[in-house]
Computed example of a mutant assay.
Amino acid sequence: MSSHDAERPDLGTGVSGCCAPKENLCRNAESVALADLFRALGHPVRIGILKEIIARQEACCGEIVGCLPLAQSTVSQHLQVLKESGLLTCEIRGRTCSYRINEAFLAGDDAAGSRLLAEAESFFSQIMTAARTSLQARERQE
């Protein structure tokens, strides 16, 4: 347990004085899925790969490698993470894989993807609301 964790009496005990049970906060399926999506988006190279695929509409690994200062194996690993997250689809064409944005996932045609994106939107909305509320409170104090 870190020193920060020692300040949180609810950690490790399952008992909470001010917080919801940690199982509800961290281990529910929605939180795990959302964290997985954010993890996939949490690397600047993967953001760059997504931007490149969006610009091209479709790209194979070799085309993406040509745009980045990275080895093919590294780009392949990043593509795999994006594919596993549901953000990309891969179509095998002979000896190459063509990657595209997963329109079904992002358009909400995929039920799980639709729920996940709605959860992400709600999460960011909550953060923005909290930030605005905090800013307004601080301005009133000044």
Rank of each mutant, 00 (worst) to 15 (best):
I49S: 09
L50H: 08
L50A: 10
L50C: 10
L50P: 06
K51I: 12
E52D: 07
I53S: 00
I53F: 00
I54C: 01
I54L: 03
I54P: 00
A55F: 01
A55P: 00
R56Q: 02
Q57G: 03
Q57I: 13
A59L: 02
A59K: 02
A59Y: 03
C60K: 05
C61D: 05
C61L: 12
E63M: 03
I64K: 04
I64N: 02
I64L: 15
G66P: 01
C67H: 12
L68K: 06
L68Y: 09
P69E: 10
L70I: 08
L70A: 09
Q72S: 15
Q72D: 15
S73W: 09
S73R: 11
S73H: 12
T74Q: 11
S76L: 06
S76N: 07
S76R: 08
Q77L: 14
Q77D: 13
H78E: 10
L79T: 03
L79Y: 05
L79F: 09
L79S: 08
L79Q: 07
Q80L: 11
Q80T: 08
Q80I: 03
L82N: 07
L82R: 12
L82P: 00
K83H: 15
E84T: 07
E84H: 09
S85E: 03
S85R: 11
S85H: 09
S85C: 12
G86T: 03
G86E: 03
L87T: 10
L88D: 01
T89K: 13
T89R: 13
C90W: 01
C90T: 10
C90V: 12
C90N: 08
C90H: 02
E91M: 08
E91L: 13
I92Q: 07
I92N: 02
I92T: 07
I92P: 00
R93H: 06
G94R: 10
G94H: 11
G94E: 15
T96G: 01
T96I: 14
T96Y: 12
C97W: 02
S98G: 01
S98C: 08
S98N: 12
Y99F: 15
Y99L: 08
Y99Q: 10
R100N: 15
I101F: 03
N102D: 15
E103L: 15
E103S: 15
A104Q: 10
L106I: 05
L106E: 04
A107Q: 10
G108M: 02
G108A: 03
D109H: 07
D110R: 00
D110L: 00
D110T: 02
A112S: 11
A112L: 05
A112F: 02
S114H: 05
S114L: 04
R115L: 07
R115Q: 09
R115D: 04
L117Q: 14
L117Y: 07
A118N: 14
E119I: 13
E119A: 15
A120V: 05
E121F: 04
E121H: 14
E121P: 00
S122N: 14
F123A: 12
